[in-house]
Design a protein around this nucleic acid. Structure first.
Length: 532
DNA sequence: TCTGGGGTCCTAGGACCC
DNA sequence: TCTGGGGTCCTAGGACCC
């Protein structure tokens, strides 16, 4: 709670979908839906054009397709979003050392702590300048809320959407909040909202009037008290830049329910390995292993086991998860499996027993390699399909590959490719061993579509291109002495300078094997298709 | 063609300990 | 010598957020 609106909340507009539209000229102004494309996928982000059809986040993809059959459907490309996010976070870092990222596309900034604003006028100016800079550097629009507290800044950015700025003058918070729905408050979701509605409270004014005791009685001590404080405009939470991770987990929903107990077991092993990979990558070990099982009827249960000490050994985590699985009834089918690790130690430390075991094994003759290779460990237990499992979809989807055939290259819908002759483009759809590519790039005119065999040697997957030419350089920014002007890891790869500066790639030839099409009948499963 | 994946925080009961 | 109290850890589940 402060007397000047110097807490800023930034929220990128329809982030994933907007990033895809910026990367793919033919999708601009069109409905775009990003999310899981499998039979059990849900929507991550819908562009504003798609929202007009009623499509929104968390909606089952099947429902979205019914509502907006002509939208473009794309899988998320986190590498791209991360690269953009780093550019944005870098801009925020120029405003203040106190930046609290909430996700790839959202963050709080304490402008006062950074000396970049001290009153209403300077805060508004900083917010508008930020929006301009984000647009210049990323090509995307963002919304900004400014207020004297986190809660109000966040409500402000929500109201500002899309592409706007809302500043809430301190002192006016209670009257601003009064008429709003209880659901506006962070922490009031469907369940709490329904609970409150049954108690006759629908607006924030109702909450303030009810009083703290009543809300505590209704919602419990912690939740009730915090909701009451928010309802009367009190929120003293500071912006904190460093937050320690508390858990790491990996989960998979299967395209069809698993019934075979052996298969369930091997999937648990696979998922445990992936979880440990991530655990190690984060520089942690953990003490409690959690198994999550969602059954055919969507009922979900978790089982956990706390070890004697933290571990980052894939074998130890596998075995714990396996033991936990023993105690779970899976008859009827398993829809989802997950493995998580909590009780993180912020350093990597070998499990004592594993260490002892290795020491034993090493006695006759030292074998330094034992388990330094999580990928190898992964292959060991996951059978013949350990081959190709690129980032994308559900575990079952490899089944598309023809049996007995050599591992087929996958071209996930929406991903960037480069063709030796036609240059950069993106996968519009694939199936029946064909890939349909639209040849365009962020800075080009909308391009044309061609179809190739998946094994065409001239076609290969490529890294995302920057959305804005020379995007790595922030305009008008004083270079900080000794500092890398580019966000470090995950930055955009250097554009192929020769091609990207040329005008749109214009295919000269009328033919590309095996077929050439302008209409987009890729013959695929329909993924990523639609009239563009 | 119903319902993802990665997280955080809170509650509540039982075990265990002093 | 009626039935203690409080703190901490572990486990399971649920609400919520993006």
């Amino acid at each position: 709670m402060r007397s000047a609106p110097t807490i800023l909340h930034l929220d990128m507009d329809a982030f994933f979908a907007a990033a895809e539209q910026a990367a793919k000229p033919s999708l601009r102004g069109k409905p775009v839906v990003v999310g899981g494309l499998g039979p059990r996928g849900v929507v991550s982000t819908a562009s504003y054009e798609a929202r007009r059809f009623g499509v929104h986040s968390a909606m089952p993809m099947a429902q979205a397709r019914r509502l907006a059959p002509n939208a473009a459907y794309l899988v998320p490309r986190f590498a791209l979003y991360r690269a953009i996010s780093e550019q944005v976070m870098e801009l925020l870092g120029r405003l203040s050392p106190l930046v609290e990222p909430l996700s790839l596309d959202e963050a709080f900034v304490d402008l006062e702590a950074g000396g970049s604003a001290h009153d209403t006028a300077s805060a508004r100016e900083a917010g508008e300048r930020l929006r301009r800079d984000i647009r210049a550097v990323t090509g995307l629009t963002a919304s900004v809320g400014l207020a004297g507290s986190k809660m109000l800044a966040k409500i402000g950015s929500e109201q500002a959407k899309p592409d706007g700025l809302v500043l809430m003058e301190p002192g006016t918070e209670r009257e601003l909040l009064a008429p709003m729905s209880v659901r506006t408050l962070p922490g009031v979701g469907p369940a709490t909202g329904e609970h409150l509605r049954r108690a006759g409270m629908t607006t924030i004014a109702d909450l303030a009037e009810a009083g703290e005791d009543e809300l505590v009685r209704l919602l419990g001590k912690s939740h009730g008290a915090s909701i009451f404080r928010m309802a009367v405009g009190h929120d003293d939470r500071p912006v904190v830049s460093e937050r320690e991770a508390k858990s790491v987990s990996v989960e998979d929903t299967f395209d069809v329910d698993l019934h075979d107990r052996v298969r369930v077991r091997t999937e648990v092993n696979r998922i445990a390995d992936r979880c440990v990979e991530r655990l190690r990558a984060s520089g942690h070990s953990g003490r409690t292993v959690v198994l999550k099982v969602r059954r055919y009827d969507f009922s979900t249960l978790t089982r956990s086991e706390t070890l004697r000490g933290p571990t980052d050994d894939p074998g130890v985590v596998r075995e714990a998860a396996g033991r936990l699985l023993e105690a779970v009834d899976t008859t009827g089918g398993v829809r989802l499996l997950g493995v998580g690790v909590t009780g993180l130690a912020d350093y990597t430390q070998e499990d004592l027993f594993a260490q002892a075991a290795e020491a034993q094994a090493a006695l006759p003759e030292p074998e330094p390699e034992s388990e330094s290779d999580p990928v190898g460990a992964m292959a060991a237990g996951s059978g013949p399909s350990a081959d190709s499992r690129p980032p994308a979809p559900g575990p079952e989807s490899v089944a598309e590959a023809v049996e007995g055939a050599p591992a087929e290259r996958r071209f996930p819908s929406g991903h960037d490719v480069r063709h030796a002759e036609y240059g950069p483009g993106w996968v519009q759809g694939s199936g029946l061993r064909r890939v349909t590519v639209r040849f365009e790039e962020p800075t080009s005119e909308p391009g044309r579509v061609r179809t190739f065999w998946v094994d065409d040697p001239d076609l290969e997957l490529s890294d995302p291109l920057p959305l804005v030419p020379g995007a790595d350089v922030v305009p008008g920014a004083d270079p900080v002495p000794g500092a890398d002007p580019v966000p470090g890891p995950g930055r955009f790869p250097a554009p192929g300078t020769d091609q990207s500066s040329l005008p749109a790639t214009r295919p000269k030839s009328r033919f590309a094997s095996p077929s050439d099409s302008d209409a987009d009948r890729s013959g695929g499963s329909g993924s990523g298709s639609g009239r563009l």
